[in-house]
Structures are given as structure tokens and as C-alpha cells.
Amino acid sequence: MSFDRRWVFLSLAIVCVGTYLWDFSVPITISEEARSIYDEVAALKEGDMIYMSVDYDPNALAELHPTTYALAELCFRKKVKVIFGTLSNLGQGMVDQVLHDISDSLRDTATYNGVFYEGREIVNGVDYVFLGYKPYPAMVIQAMGLDFRVPFPTDYYGTPIDSIPIMQGTKNFDQCKLVVDMAAGNVAEMWITYGHGNYGVPLALAVTGVMGADMYPYLRSGQIFGLAAGLLGAAQLEKLCDNPGRAMDGMRIQLFAHILIILFIIMGNIGFLATRKLNKLK
């Protein structure tokens, strides 16, 4: 018994596009691990500083961009200062895009979770700094734990670190309340090993779905305080931030796509058992 896999692709495409065109929403249940991230970020006060490591390429943009948007906007609305960095060679474009889009949306007034925020202009060097990219993540994390200036003598735009207002008096992770790593790949584990293990930084992870199950042991051991895995994690954070975006929109498609895949798995198993039975009868 054989079945051309292209029929699976076609039916999945039809279901996904069909569901996308059908306007409805699905309830999103909030997990404790996603809530932990939101609670920690929401508890930050004006003037506090965090480090956001945007360690993903465009190929993981679908799952991690919504998290970066939601958390960065929450921080800027609360006037929390953010140090952006990337340990992924194509991650610079990701940060650039997020900063560009968020600068636009922050100009408008908004109310999130019942709190009114006045529109404002975010200023590079005052509200945030983007350090840019350096290779060899483990070495860079180690070096940043000593002094940000060691791996990053200038920021992404070529400005010497010491002349950036936000970096004056900021030496290393000691001045950051927490680190959030949005990661696709083994950089997440390097943050656990070198960032948390060496310097004890309070660390939260937003990872791709593929990595999700592998990260739960670190949550249980307390090496990370929060975890947002895949599009579901991103949708949970969007809901918690009261800032619906592409992740929440994508969850309704996930629902029907998963139902279809479960049906295919059941059909595959029935086919397998039936073939085995027929072979035995022969």
C-alpha cells in the first residue's frame, strides 16, 4: 500500500489557507512557564535594564519574532531600558526590523491590560542599545559577563560603547535585572551553561518548537525561570501582554493543521495494520 506524500502537502496547504481565510479565534491557555516570563518583565520598574539576546535567523522568524515584538514593546512602554545583542549571524536584521516596527507603534498611545501608555519616541542610546553580532557564542557570553566592552567595543552602528548614555555605568550582566534569550539552535544551552552557570543571570528562554521539549528539564532544575516554546509560547506572551499579533492569529491555523495531521497518523496506522494483516493472510 502506497500513498503519494504530495497529497498530504496539498491537503495541509488547503486546510491552512482555508483556515486562514476563515475569520475566527481559538482560546489560548496560559502556561505557568510563559506566565513566569511575563510576570518578571511586568514587575520591572522604569529605568531598570534587561538584556535581550535575539539569537535567531529569518528561518525561525515565524516562531520567535512575535515574542521579541511583544516583550520589547512591553519593556519600552514601561520605560525599561533594553540592551539588544545577537549571537546569530543573520540576527542583526531581525533586531533592526523589530526596532524599526516598534518605534512606529510606540508613537501611538495604547492601553494594555488596562494600563494607559502615552505614545513616545524611543531614542537609540537612551532607551536601548543594539550591540550587534559577534561569533562564537560561548566566548561572547563569557566575555560579556566580564564587560560588554570586551566583545563589543562599538555598538551595531559603530558608536563607541563608552559614548552611549545607556552604557555609562553599565559594565556587565550585574546591571541587568534579567536576560531573555530568543533562540533557534544551541545558543540557548550556551546561555544556560555560561550565562546562568557562570554568572548566575536570571534567564528566560523563548525557543523554537523543535527545541521546546528539550528545554523543560532546565525549567524544572531552576536554571531558567521561564520558557516560551514555539508559536504557542509566543501566542501566550502576546495574550499576556494584551498585544495580539501574528502568533495569536496563527494558532487557529495550528488547530486545524494538527487535527489533519492526527487524522493522517491514524490513517497511516490503520493502513500499516491492514497491510500486515493482509500479508499474514497471504
Binding site: L12, L61, A62, E63, G209, G212, A213, R246, Q254, H258
Partner: peptide, 23 residues
């Protein structure tokens, strides 16, 4: 059980990529 959890997350990840392209 571990592989099943990883597979479930992987399916979600792959669908997410397709969803983003539709968007």
C-alpha cells in the same frame, strides 16, 4: 513519550513556518 513530545512541537514549528508564509 519524549520523542512524541518533541515530534508534536516539531509539527507545530513546521506549521508555524507555513503560517508565516501565508501571512
Amino acid at each position: 513519550i519524549g520523542f512524541g513530545a518533541s515530534f508534536g512541537y516539531t509539527v507545530m514549528g513546521r506549521i508555524s513556518l507555513f503560517v508565516q508564509r501565508i501571512q
